[in-house]
Design a binder for these strands. Sequence first.
DNA 1: GTTATACTTCGATGTACGTCAAATTATATG
DNA 2: CATATAATTTGACGTACATCGAAGTATAAC
Lengths: 112, 112
Amino acid sequence: MRTLPQPSVDSLDLTTVLAALADPVRRTLLDAIDIGTEPVACSAAATTVDVGAPTVSHHWRVLREAGLIETTVDGRQRFVRIRRDDLERRFPGLLPAVLSSEQRTTKPATNL
Amino acid sequence: MRTLPQPSVDSLDLTTVLAALADPVRRTLLDAIDIGTEPVACSAAATTVDVGAPTVSHHWRVLREAGLIETTVDGRQRFVRIRRDDLERRFPGLLPAVLSSEQRTTKPATNL
DNA sequence: GTTATACTTCGATGTACGTCAAATTATATG
DNA sequence: CATATAATTTGACGTACATCGAAGTATAAC
């Protein structure tokens, strides 16, 4: 159950993080694992996206190297989880503003 | 005092916005005009950045076409201003999270 | 009208990126 | 051991992008 190498909180770079977020496929992957705090199987999240396996693997790498996700290896499966606390500490409000903000409508919150 | 064409609030695209923000030169330009609500002269903001005039012009265009700034023409000068309200309406919290968050330290807010 | 100023457009160049097919690694299962 | 599975790595391809020099546009100043 080892964890793949990832940048420390302090070394997170805003340009790198934003570049990682500026890809629709990567944001879809993030949205797919944006449920609770338990790690999600890569294979499961990958079904939400319409690119080949090598491309998905590439995107996981970019997300991990940017510091957005933590990847753990268990057998021949990989599990990923969003580094929410680390990101909130380094760039407060950024992730909540980006994740699933496509679904957000412009209408003035009638559900209060 | 005409205003250059810009995307409407509803047509703002998250991928485009994030891609525009994922460049350090463009973020420096945004930080330079991120003061109050009055438009700032392009020439003034451009002094904060170390690239040639054509490149600066290119970056203003990218920022405008992404919907991040509004550009007005007055004589031979251009003035720019951040479209704060529009962006807040479309992507709440995004801009505040990005602008000047490089200066933000990791220390736990001792100033309370 | 000529010169200066502020900025843009054009064309070129090098680099980075998203994608895929093929080959590879590593673990599990028969 | 042989086969299957989950994912990565490698190499290639096309495209997009940041940058610059040179030329162009438009307005202001003389």
